[in-house]
Design a protein around this nucleic acid. Structure first.
Length: 663
RNA sequence: GGGCCCGUAGCUCAGCCAGGAUAGAGCGCCGGCCUCCUAAGCCGGUGGUCGGGGGUUCAAAUCCCCCCGGGCCCGCCA
């Protein structure tokens, strides 16, 4: 074996070996249209050891390409036996299995580790792209909660994964400061006579409280008016229903008051006799058209405060954004206007009940568009209004401009929007609108990375009513539990070390729990489960990493620094658990590349779990590396541990979890 | 009414796109293992009509159709 780099390692992963061999054999037998990727996909670990290490359902390809199975098998066998890492090829019914030469695999792994160091296994993409990942983008009116955490964890992991794959990635946070919600929040501050968050308060938490109080009180005010109307109109049933609504609102209000009676009373007092709906609309207009500089400054200041709170919370999860984009900047600058002008020149331009709009329906006949955007047969898309009759723009209009801005500023090949699945239609409209306006490349390369909602067992969350468990509280709980564990397990550490470990472990547990469920699946977030530090959790992986680190540290303390030259590769084949660890390591570059290319971090999570499992089984078997007397065997074991540590560390880093050497 | 997503062990989830080897994990529950590289670990056991019904196929958790249950979306809201 000459080269020892990540690409060589990747090409020697079981999936690649098998796919390459089968594809080549099929082509030699005259098969047309052989899809190597498809073969790669169906490679699986052999169910029983005696069958081999990895196998592929060969019969399926023989049939598909009308090639006799026996002949195909013989051909593949011959080709595979030429592969340096293949020791044997076996047939079991329609399956073909390979037995790997774990000693040779070890040599390749050890040499690659030597050459690639910390980027061991992180194969670079053949074609590096420029990518934008927009994520989190929470409304700046209340603290982040668990749903935002899923978004942030997915988005940040995606960004790290794509970067590790060699792409250029820029992360962005879209600040939705033009919505009614922000105006409600600002309104609350004005009613309370406050122009800023009082010192000593975590800004997003305080803002969330003002927002919830204001929203609830405003709703009570307008409900009262409707109740009055219903009473006068004599609609008894409606009247009763509204009264029930009022009861529930008043209960929410009472709960909110408890959290800060003085603040609540001030807002309640000030709102009396006012028309909150009109006041709020007035504020919104004032901000969009910048008619009142003081109002603009207040909006900006409060939103900025809330974002400070976000940044603080996100930092605890190791989440950072490269850029923060204000929705209001889009409205104030020429970009939105330009979109409107382009719309007017577009053949898709239409008037929808007098408002300027795009009729996107004809685009659905374009097969490429259908395919790229995943549009089902017979789908109907409603006309997209770009500008209200009163001249103001809409969220989606600004979002079209924003998407374009992301492509422009980053010179991006692709844009990923990590946005809740409920925004599916809006995201589809944005992409269709881009295509309609002539930005076909941008429209086709905008990807809605949709995720489903996070539910808490029990009550429904509501930002408007202040009913939520904040992400900060959640992380606090996780850290507290981790702290108790550290105390119990490593009493000899200094308090600072214990704190540091507890912070890392607690936050990691939350992140890990959120990315381990595939994004389109609605998930129930049971805090106790996320904080269950057993297998299938961040602490389990961190612990495994710490164990590996510990072995290497012990060896170093004894003055042992293993080198590939000293190692006896034959030692790997001697012990099935050692062997398994090495074989599993060989899979890493393939799994990593697949997870990145398909944007599926959960694949990496699943892999690293079984990987840690493999490591721990070997570890617990008592086949000690440090205490091994034979120098060649000891070096081999230590190098296998070193590779394992690197695989664990790299995966943790991709998941935004800082690996630690002790816990 | 139309569309999308989800339904796999008591619980939380992989596997489904790319159909095949006795359906996998973890948690829980029961029973074991710390003079020896960290027991946040390891070993053994328990547990499944893959929501239901049809169809395609030599072969269906996986593909197609119908139905049931849960969520979401169909605004001159964001």
């Amino acid at each position: 074996m000459t080269a020892a780099d990540n690409n060589t390692l990747y090409e020697n992963s079981p999936h690649r070996i098998l796919a390459r061999g089968v594809a080549k054999a099929l082509r030699q037998l005259g098969a047309q249209g052989v899809d190597e990727k498809e073969i790669e996909y169906v490679v699986a670990e052999s169910p029983r050891e005696d069958l081999g290490d990895y196998g592929v359902p060969l019969a399926r390809f023989a049939r598909r390409h009308r090639v006799p199975l026996d002949e195909l098998f013989e051909r593949v066998r011959k080709l595979l036996l030429q592969e340096p890492l293949v020791r044997d090829v076996r047939r079991a019914g329609g399956y073909l299995n390979i037995v790997l030469d774990a000693s040779k695999a070890f040599e390749l792994i050890a040499a690659t580790l030597e050459a690639e160091g910390e980027s061991f296994g992180l194969v670079r993409a053949g074609e590096p792209l420029r990518l934008v990942v927009e994520h989190t983008s929470a409304n700046p009116v209340h603290p982040l909660h668990i749903g935002h955490a899923r978004n942030a964890s997915l988005g940040d992991t995606l960004a790290r994964l794509l970067r590790a794959r060699g792409h250029w990635v820029e992360t962005r946070f879209y600040i939705n400061d033009m919505g009614r919600q922000v105006a409600v929040m600002v309104y609350g501050f004005r009613l309370a006579g406050l122009s800023d968050v009082p010192p000593g308060e975590k800004p997003d938490h305080f803002i969330g409280l003002v927002y919830a109080m204001t929203h609830t009180l405003a709703d009570i005010e307008s409900l009262k008016k409707r109740i009055e109307e219903a009473k006068n109109s004599g609609d008894e049933e409606r009247y009763r229903q509204l009264l029930r609504e009022l009861d529930s609102l008043v209960a929410d209000a009472a709960r909110l008051r408890e959290r800060n009676p003085e603040l609540f009373d001030r807002i309640a007092e000030a709102i009396k006799g006012r028309d909150p709906d009109r006041d709020i609309s007035e504020l919104m207009r004032s901000y969009e058209y910048r008619t009142d500089e003081e109002v603009v400054r207040l909006f900006r200041r409060l939103v900025e405060r809330c974002l400070q709170g976000f940044r603080e919370t996100l930092a605890r999860l190791n989440v950072h954004h490269d850029r923060w984009d204000w929705e209001s900047d889009l409205a104030w600058q020429s970009l939105v206007g330009k979109i409107l002008e382009e719309a007017r020149r577009s053949p898709y331009y239409t008037l929808h009940r007098g408002a300027e709009a795009l009729n996107l329906q004809p685009l659905l006949e374009d097969p490429e568009v259908r395919k790229a955007l995943g549009i089902p047969e017979g789908y109907e898309v409603p006309p997209l209004v770009l500008r209200r009759s009163d001249g103001t723009t809409l969220y989606t209009t600004r979002d079209i401009a924003y998407t374009l801005k992301k492509f422009r500023e980053a010179r991006a090949d692709k844009v990923f929007n990590v946005i809740a699945a409920e925004q599916r239609l809006e995201q589809l409209q944005v992409r269709l609108a881009l295509i309609a306006l002539g930005y076909r490349r941008e429209g086709l390369n905008t990807i809605h990375y949709a995720y489903e909602m996070v539910n808490l067992p029990g009550q429904k969350m509501s930002g408007r009513r202040g009913r939520y468990i904040t992400l900060d509280q959640l992380i606090d709980q996780a850290v507290a539990i981790a702290r108790r564990e550290v105390e119990k397990r490593s009493p000899d550490l200094t308090p600072e070390e214990k704190d540091r470990i507890a912070q890392a472990v607690g936050a990691a547990a939350v992140r890990y729990a959120l990315v381990s469920v595939s994004a389109p699946k609605p998930m129930t977030f049971d805090i106790n489960r996320a904080l269950d530090f057993d297998q299938s959790s961040a602490p389990y992986i961190l612990y495994t990493h710490a164990r590996a680190a510990n072995i290497l540290r012990k060896a170093e303390q004894r003055g042992i620094t293993p080198s590939p030259a000293q190692a006896d590769p034959a030692a790997i084949e001697e012990n099935p658990l050692r062997r398994k660890l090495v074989v599993k390591t060989l899979e890493y570059p393939y799994i990593f590349a697949k997870a990145a290319d398909e944007q599926r971090p959960e694949l990496l999570v699943a892999y690293i779990n079984t990987y840690a499992d493999t490591f721990n089984k070997w570890y617990a078997s008592g086949d000690s590396a440090v205490n091994e007397l034979d120098p060649g065997k000891r070096a081999a074991k230590l190098l296998a541990v070193k590779a394992a540590k690197q695989v664990l560390a790299n995966t943790l880093n991709i998941l935004g979890i800082t690996p630690i050497d002790r816990m």
